[in-house]
């Protein structure tokens, strides 16, 4: 298992929105998808995930509805809203600019 990395401050919202871009998911599935997509490098602090989901729902970026998981458990499923898609684009652009700037700094001699 590769060493785990902490999420950067402010990046959790971006990652959650990205996870929800194609499919509606419940909280555990979001955490799992993030881990899978990052090859188990990024581990979301489970205690931070739900406050973040509530915050995104409060801002209208995701919708939440109760449903049943394939395992037959009652779960709360989150779906990306139009507003959330726009937000994802914005955050993605910000992240691109941020990482570019960080890379430039690191490449400097």
């Amino acid at each position: 298992m590769p060493p785990r990395a902490d999420l950067l401050q402010g990046s959790l919202d971006l990652l959650i929105l990205k996870c929800l871009l194609n499919d509606p998911l419940h909280g555990w599935a979001i955490a799992k998808r993030l881990r899978d997509w990052s090859s188990e490098v990024l581990e979301v602090n489970q205690g931070s995930l739900y406050p973040a989901l509530y915050r995104l729902e409060e801002r209208g970026w995701v919708d939440a509805a109760w449903g049943v998981s394939p395992e037959g458990r009652k779960v709360k499923v989150y779906t990306l809203t139009k507003l959330g898609r726009r937000q994802l684009d914005e955050e993605r652009e910000q992240w691109r600019r941020f990482s570019l700037a960080v890379n430039q700094v690191l490449r400097a001699t």
């Binding site: 909280g27 555990w28 489970q46 739900y50 458990r73 009652k74 779960v75």
Partner: peptide
């Protein structure tokens, strides 16, 4: 919220 957390813990378990 309690129900959602319980569900999360069940998945992890």
């Amino acid at each position: 919220m309690d129900e959602e957390i319980a569900s999360h813990l069940a998945f992890a378990e």
